[in-house]
Design a protein around this nucleic acid. Structure first.
Lengths: 322, 322
DNA sequence: CTAGGTGCAAATAATTTGCAGAGGC
DNA sequence: GCCTCTGCAAATTATTTGCACCTAG
């Protein structure tokens, strides 16, 4: 399941340069799964054609990086390794010091915390590295080097995007259901009911899609998690939910909803962008746009509410700070 | 404020090898603040004594690592840098690509999440690297290379240990106060009251200590945060607090308290160990032992409760919910 | 024909090592 | 005097470059 060369040819990013044995090197590189060092790649290539010089391989790796096909990674070995970058979002690594395999993962929560740290120092973060060194399961349970797939495929991105979307959707559904129950204003309540209805519907769609994905590859579910999230699903709505349960008026509820939808939209937008044009991106973006619609609905309703309740000097105004 | 050579002489870790100009190199290294490359160190040393060869510097760095004085760090520049390790816990880095300065931080939350990821993959994590690359405040606001201290001193460790301890103490105080209010059983309630009392007292001690620390160096408070925490302070008690507010009986309350104290104790124990023999360690360890006492108190009380209520098939416990 | 692409060998760069001499205990 | 430390120069490793040649458009 590595990205096939055909796949790649079609979508070749890269600037307008020639092709020749560069193509060959690129193909060998993409056929592989792990994180190759330049030397590993030279060896692989020499197996099939020993007329290719080390310099060309280095130059081609350079070119692949510019073209967005490869990405340099540094596992502290004193030399660099390269991983496929095409349709592969930046991610973090677990690195086994015993068998030298590495495993990829992403955690939206870790990323969020890193952003907080950077902003606490007014540091403009461009990119980040998270590496966990240790011993992998296979190595610690005895068995030496198992030839498992270390590469995360698109199927897994899609699976994890769906999982995250589903969890968030559930949490949103919960939220709106509770909001509807707790909102006294009829109009406000009906908005929440409508939103809950839509969340439920979308949730159904997502779950169907998840099942469909699994049916395409029954082993998919048991493959290790790539994208970890906690705050994503829970955090977005949880502050809102907490305040709701203390009882709020319709205006406050709408405001809370707006905040949640906006957060959710931004969140999925951001992850969608990260996943380039893989199927994972589709899911994130679709989700983001759904959230955006909700957001707009809420904003419209909020404006309506303000207009109706107008500039009457009612005390509720002070709730504006919520 | 760098660890002085005297300081270091006294506590010299290192195995029983000779000293000579090695001492000189070590001293020059420890005098510096930032993260030096081998070459930086050679340059610095040659300023004072140009009879020292590059090889010796490399060999001495090697020795310093074995002795626990230095630690190798890799900022992806194609060469290594070295940072002081003596009384310096492992930490994470913000790395400015523009001025090459680096800033240290630690985040208990990020660490906790990394542990979760590792354990989800049955990966035995030994150590981890977190690096945030970007542009530092000074560089993005125009002014070029400011010669600020990149090194985190013991004062800051102590400050942050205290901050974390205080936050946790507050959260514990809250928790026990609420627990006392919600516990119907007189004995259980008095336990919680006692614990709350102790938390309050210890909180006072900690706050006094914090003030004292600040008075020793008024600028200390404004220096950037080294140790970030959120879950540490809130998380430990929050699940407990949530359950409490739904109403619990004395036994359940005790159980929750036990869980919280145990978590808290382990947490501070762990961070204490990380901070070697700096003042930060003292604070963490002291805190850990306070928590341990509470824990033991709770366990004793729990056992007493069980013994008293014994094997009566009491239903009363359940009906207690408010 | 011409801009790149390619091979080979030499150049860099960071770090390590062999070996003979120096120094501490 | 033994064992380790040092200096120096040569070796090693990963990566880059100069230069002449080759190849596709």
């Amino acid at each position: 399941m590595p990205t096939s060369s055909v796949d790649f040819e079609r979508a070749r990013p890269a600037g307008g340069k020639r092709s020749s044995k560069r193509d060959f090197i690129v193909n060998v590189f993409l056929r592989q799964e792990g994180h190759l060092s330049a030397d590993d790649l030279v060896d692989l290539i020499r197996k099939e054609d020993h007329r290719i010089s080390r310099a060309t391989v280095y130059r081609t790796l350079q070119w692949m990086m510019e073209a967005g096909i490869a990405r340099k990674v540094d596992f502290g070995e004193g030399r660099f390794r390269f991983e496929p970058a095409y349709r592969h979002p930046r991610h973090f690594h677990l690195i086994c010091k015993s068998c030298n395999q590495s495993f990829e993962f992403l955690s939206s929560d870790i990323e969020a915390l890193m952003e907080e740290v950077a902003s606490a120092r007014n540091f403009d973060a461009k990119q980040s590295v998270v590496q966990i060194y240790g011993t992998c399961e296979d190595c610690s349970t005895g068995r030496p080097v198992a030839p498992k797939s270390g590469t995360t495929t698109e199927m897994i991105f899609a699976r994890d995007a769906l999982r995250m979307a589903i969890a968030t959707e559930r949490s949103g559904l919960d939220f709106y259901t509770r909001a509807a129950r707790l909102t006294h204003d009829a109009r406000g309540r009906s908005i929440f009911q409508k939103l809950a209805e839509e969340e439920k519907e979308h949730l159904g769609t997502l779950e169907a899609r998840y099942k469909q994905l699994l049916s395409a590859d029954p082993q998919l579910e048991s493959r290790p998690t790539f994208l970890f999230f906690k705050g994503a699903a829970n955090g977005l709505f949880s502050q809102g939910a907490e305040r709701l349960s203390k009882g709020v008026n319709d205006q406050q509820a709408l405001m809370i909803g707006i905040r949640c939808e906006r957060g959710s939209h931004r969140f999925f937008q951001k992850y969608g962008e990260r996943f380039e044009d893989s199927e994972g991106k589709q899911i994130f973006m679709e989700f983001a746009s759904e959230e955006k619609q909700h957001l707009e609905l809420l904003i419209r309703e909020y404006k309506g509410l303000i207009a109706r309740k107008g500039r009457r000097p009612r005390k509720a105004a002070r709730t504006r700070r919520a």
